[in-house]
């Protein structure tokens, strides 16, 4: 009997946990998008007031934003020392490298990679324009991510618990 109870508790708690983890990804994406948004805002200021070159700008940004995005920016700022890498290579590679730790979707990466093409290549005004476009896209993505979060977050949490219950009932 005791073994049974322990098994029941284990099954329910683990499936609930899985549900929570999946639900968490929605919240995580919103959070990450918001951090990227503020990172790009910081970048805008770096360009306007400091004309800071990319390596230093990214380093400054990394110091001011939260994990895990700050790791991506740190990695970028450290990659600039290598001669044969182009700016776009550095930008794309860094995001690819941390893809596994991030909850972002392909659509989000598309926006970022799009920005990578113009990063550092043009004059101040043009840079600001490109960043502005990316910021606008990111904002829509964030909005959408938030909607999805509202819709699915609770469902995944309940679903986890209920699946656990179902397994238990079937097994008894």
């Amino acid at each position: 009997m005791l073994v049974k109870i322990i098994a029941i508790v284990l099954v329910i708690s683990s499936s609930t946990l899985i549900g929570f983890l999946l639900a968490n990804r929605f919240g995580q994406r919103v959070k990450e998008l918001r951090v990227i948004y503020s990172a790009l805002k910081h970048f805008e200021t770096e360009i306007v007031y400091g004309l800071t070159p990319l390596p230093n700008a990214f380093k400054n940004i990394a110091n001011r934003i939260d994990e895990p995005i700050c790791k991506v920016f740190t990695h970028m700022s450290e990659s600039f020392g290598q001669h044969d890498l182009t700016t776009i290579d550095i930008w794309t590679n860094s995001w690819e490298l941390y893809k596994q730790n991030l909850a972002l979707k392909k659509r989000d990466y598309d926006i970022l990679f799009q920005l990578g093409h113009s990063l550092g290549q043009t004059d101040k005004e043009n840079q600001l324009k490109h960043i502005g476009i990316s910021l606008a896209y990111l904002q829509t993505e964030e909005h959408e991510a938030r909607n999805e979060q509202h819709k699915h977050e609770k469902m995944y949490k309940y679903l986890g618990f209920l699946t656990g219950m179902m397994i238990v009932i079937l097994m008894i």
């Binding site: 360009i47 004309l51 800071t52 070159p53 390596p55 600039f80 990063l119 550092g120 004059d123 101040k124």
Partner: peptide, 17 residues
């Protein structure tokens, strides 16, 4: 040419405008 420009501008054309 591309690499020299990239290195002297430190990947940031706006900084050497």
């Amino acid at each position: 040419c591309k690499q020299v420009l990239q290195t002297i501008s430190n990947h940031s054309m706006y900084a050497i405008e």
